[in-house]
Nucleic acid binder design. Structure first.
Lengths: 190, 190
DNA sequence: ATGTTTATTGATTGACGCGTCAATTAAAAA
DNA sequence: TTTTTAATTGACGCGTCAATCAATAAACAT
């Protein structure tokens, strides 16, 4: 029963299903069949729209990245002072949407995937560069070494992600932990 | 040409080869054949000694963990003050042996593997718990909240590992970055 | 010598999964 | 109504890979 304009609907369904499957399996060892089944279609259709499995994974990651970008912009727009901007950036990294186990699992797996897939690596670089730029720009007025501090904060975010993915999250709030840890490195406002 | 007592030699060769293969591929998508070939034997022999592929991976990770433990003990034994002990712990995490790209790749992949393999998860918990205990014990005399600080430092170590694995390491020395970042949270010696 | 144990592998099996393709359906266009 | 076009799938070919097994060969024991 072919209705027209199914492509975007199918693509989104597949992307969502892929993220869910990756989350359920905890790895990228997920078959196109399983993804398609969850998305309510045949695997042939998935191949028809995406070409191959890697493209599905990449689309899933792009989807997650886009969601994160929205989260960041939304929070940044409500921040005025550098300190508020820093808080916004860090809290965005641990927003509900990013902290979803499925999303964390996808992140972790795509980190590894980036090792062997130049396309995945490029996507990761986009995220990293954007976060780094945002942090440096925000820190410049209030930190002596904005670049070094930004790199440390970024690594800390990544590290807390891993710990969350491994279920060892008894930490109340990763964001406030980072901010408290960072505070001594910020200059007094004058 | 069966010489006797080959088992330990074969096992070590397979473990080393597995780490090399994982490092070369950047993922766990490595065939038993490839590992066996690199180790200079047939895949049947690998199965003979290890039973299945997962056991090879686990043995490889145990091997890496053991090497890390040696590194830690060695450096701890030469430290007297709490501050020296902290330096020893952090620097051990970024020792040459841990920073080897092959080893980093293995770590990253086994993080993911732990998601679906209880055995791998148990191994990771051993490492995490040991590091956490060491950090807390070391920090107790010089930090107000040893547990929270230990968790943050551990996450920071993990995060810097990822960045190293992704090749974005322009940072001079991760260890000194961590120590500098941690310094303000240590109490004055009295 | 003869038998037992250990080491070793080539060949094989069985399963699985990606990607393709021809065929089908039904909406839209002519 | 006829034709085109988008949507959709079942079946399948092809390759891959983990794991098994029977067979061979050398060391050791008696």
């Amino acid at each position: 029963m072919p209705k027209l304009g199914m492509e975007p609907i199918r693509r989104e369904a597949l992307v969502t299903a892929a993220i869910a499957e990756i989350g359920a399996a905890g790895s990228l060892d997920v078959t196109v069949s399983a993804i398609s089944k969850r998305a309510g279609m045949s695997s042939a259709l998935a191949h028809h729209y995406f070409g191959n499995k890697d493209q599905i994974f990449l689309a899933a990651m792009r989807h997650i990245l886009a969601g994160f970008a929205v989260e960041v912009r939304s929070r940044l727009s409500m921040a005025d002072t550098p300190r508020d901007r820093l808080t916004a950036l860090v809290e965005a990294s641990f927003a509900q949407s990013c902290f979803d186990p499925e999303v964390i699992s996808a992140w972790l797996n795509f980190y590894v995937k980036a090792h062997s897939s130049p396309d995945a690596m490029r996507l990761l670089r986009v995220y990293q560069h954007r976060l780094r730029s945002n942090l440096i720009h925000t820190l410049r007025p209030i930190a002596r070494e904005p670049e070094a501090l930004a790199d440390t904060i970024a690594a800390l975010i990544d590290g807390l992600y891993i710990r969350a993915a491994l279920g060892a999250v008894k930490t109340n709030d990763p964001a406030s932990a980072i901010l408290a840890f960072t505070a001594p490195h910020l200059e007094d406002e004058r």
